[in-house]
Design a protein around this nucleic acid. Structure first.
Length: 210
DNA sequence: TGATGATCATGC
DNA sequence: GCATGATCATCA
């Protein structure tokens, strides 16, 4: 799998798309998942939309990461949703930890038309002790707010490396939950995201040690 | 220009 | 409905 990923580096997305009879969209406004799905195809990952790793037999998650020519991520990285009903009781059992236990990052370089973007060198990553500690600290703090019903205190500003931000079809995508005063309130659906600074640092660390 | 909040498509 | 795949759009 890693070899197949390396073999793609330097290619444009148009070149890869052509192999699969696909046409790159002019922009990603209505095709936000196009790059991720193309790379899944190219690497023989399992079909999307399943609650399991992209490579179940390897336990590896595939993530594309849009970066500028110096390797700096343009965006935060979606990890997983935060179920309105609540989170796992401990970090060890958390879905987020499992999702991030082993990731194959594929940098996608540039902001040109999608077809003109270039695939960078893949990076196989597992959190080191410090990275896991950072993630855990943020996750536990955010979990405490969710579980405690302190919903008005949650915003994208919290978390040094991990954010909890809205995620849904639109802002009216909500559920009814109990807040800290045991009142039923309508809450937006949220998901965990990695801050660009964190993904940038893990890329450079992984490249140093690879 | 970066970060936050909003949004889009698809599959089961 | 909720998971997968993310980027867009706006404002400080």
């Amino acid at each position: 799998m890693l070899d197949r990923a390396y073999a793609l580096s330097g290619l444009t997305l148009s070149e890869i798309a052509r192999r699969y009879g696909q046409t790159p969209p002019p922009d990603l406004r209505r095709h936000k998942g196009w790059i991720g799905q193309l790379l899944e195809m190219a690497l023989g990952a399992r079909a999307a939309s399943r609650a399991e790793p992209d490579f179940p037999h390897l336990g590896v998650e595939l993530k594309t990461l849009p970066v500028d020519p110096t390797g700096k991520p343009y965006e935060s990285t979606f990890v997983c949703t935060a179920p309105p009903g609540g989170l796992a009781p401990t970090w060890e059992e958390s879905w987020l930890r499992r999702k991030l236990s082993c990731v194959l990052w594929i940098p996608i370089i540039g902001r040109d038309a999608p077809g003109d973007r270039v695939v960078g060198g893949a990076v196989r990553w597992q959190p080191d002790v410090r990275e896991e500690q950072s993630l855990r600290t943020d996750w536990e703090a955010l979990r405490a707010l969710l579980v405690g019903g302190r919903l008005d205190e949650i915003s994208g500003r919290r978390g040094a490396v991990l954010q909890l931000r809205p995620k849904g079809a639109n802002a009216s995508d909500t559920s009814w939950v109990l807040d800290a005063d045991a009142n039923w309130v309508q809450e937006q659906h949220r998901a965990f995201y990695l801050r660009p600074k964190f993904t940038q640092e893990l890329l450079t660390r992984a490249l140093r040690t690879q």
